[in-house]
Design a protein around this nucleic acid. Structure first.
Lengths: 242, 242
DNA sequence: GGTCTGGATTTTGTATCCAATATCCGTTAA
DNA sequence: TTAACGGATATTGGATACAAAATCCAGACC
């Protein structure tokens, strides 16, 4: 028995012995497993470089190895795990340079989306952004970091949804997932940095005023600052810059 | 027997009854199958919207359905096929708007890479680009379109490799795959357009001269023009803009 | 003592089998 | 005639069983 990583692990809906299955779960097993694994990676429960054993996961989730394999394949495509040929899966590691690149990619994509979204955003959409921001601050103040990822994701969707660029948004989503992972790792430390809160509000204000260039510049600056701070922190923690 | 789509289909190295397997094929079956399917999709052998039957493919490749499933999952992650829940896979279709978006993404990523690559490109790397370009023109003039995709890919790698941005390059690779698919569909028609040839050379010349802004502007224009032309062609062929 | 070899064990990869779901088609009732 | 129901068929999803590959470890040889 290699049980017991997290308590949530075995509580996947739709295990082998199901019973009450209200609102028929339309997600396939691999998707559910992939979601859970993704969360475990992003939350740091599975550390960078850690090897993932199919058999062990299958036992934890009480399924066969097959859906686990497909979930891993999916996460591999997302870049969260690395899948070598007869050697199994490991959680993806990024060098500091790659982490910098991830943030640069975010800037590239987000600025493009923001620029396109601003002119066509409705008041309702802007309001939604404000609401989500308020929620984020609330959970932030309450030290409830658990739902930070989901809220952040919803914020992005609300901000950039108006651009009507599905492919770009999905691409950004994947990149953001990676950056979120490293942000979360240091979220407690980064709490110090309050200017970010004001920048969010300022971003919305500029968007509302239709000041495209100023808004985009601030956004780029915002992401860039997060990147610099994070890199400083990480370079500190791993001196040999792996 | 549902055999006989293309002659190449059953000629996969490493089928069930292999014999001479020199230079041990280090690729897994799913990878090989995915590669072949990818080529079939990009070449138009599998048409947009066409449904893909696991069983049929498994028979063609003479393997069980399992590696086929994993290959499909991989292609799904790459965005080449769409995988619905108990309904199997279909070749991804893009609306004209999405195709436009694909080209815009290419512009975004390629310009960023080019801008970073130009200052650090060596003479050798520039020379390699020239060589590949010559090859492309040769195969182009010989009406040998079969290797266009591979050459184009090598050209991109040579052009942007110096930037040292693996993640961005890989992301571009996936986007370029999609655009290549639509370019290939209309390659015979687009042969008319010779200015593109000169632009390629001009691009290298500007890069060599270190004229970053001019080079990037030309690149953006180059991609934008291909996009416009392709969209015009496609809008013509499918009037109801699906 | 260190390195190489060969088997035992572990882990992944593929095939086959069974279950669940969707699709198709004929029938029935309004 | 048309729409809705229900069963037959086709197709996908998941589990188990088996094969291949990699890793580990002990022993022999240099």
């Amino acid at each position: 028995m290699t049980h017991g990583r997290t308590a949530t692990a075995s509580a996947i809906p739709g295990g082998r012995e199901m019973g009450a299955k209200r609102a028929i779960s339309r997600q396939s097993l691999p998707d559910v497993i992939a979601s859970d694994l993704r969360e475990r990676i992003l939350s740091g429960d599975l550390a960078e470089g850690e090897t993932i054993r199919q058999e062990a996961l299958a036992e934890e989730y009480d399924v066969s190895r097959m859906p686990v394999r497909e979930a891993l394949k999916q996460l591999d495509a997302e870049g969260l795990v690395h899948l070598a040929n007869n050697r199994g899966a490991t959680v993806t590691e990024h060098s500091l340079g790659e982490i910098a690149e991830i943030f640069d990619l975010r800037t590239l994509l987000e600025v493009d989306l923001f620029r396109r979204a601003i002119p066509v955003m409705t008041a309702a959409q802007l309001g939604l952004c404000q609401d989500i921001l308020t929620q984020m601050e609330a959970s932030y103040n309450a030290n409830d970091v658990s739902q930070w990822g989901a809220l952040n994701q919803r914020f992005h969707a609300a901000l950039y949804g108006a651009a009507g660029r599905n492919l770009t948004n999905e691409m950004l989503h994947r990149v953001a997932l990676q950056s979120d992972r490293y942000i979360r790792m240091h979220l407690s430390v980064m709490k110090q940095r309050e200017p970010a809160r004001k920048e969010h509000r300022e971003l919305l204000k500029l968007a509302q005023a239709g000041q495209v260039d100023a808004a985009c510049a601030l956004l780029a600056q915002h992401i860039g600052r997060a990147k610099e701070q994070l890199l400083t922190l990480m370079a500190d923690r791993r001196p040999g810059q792996p």
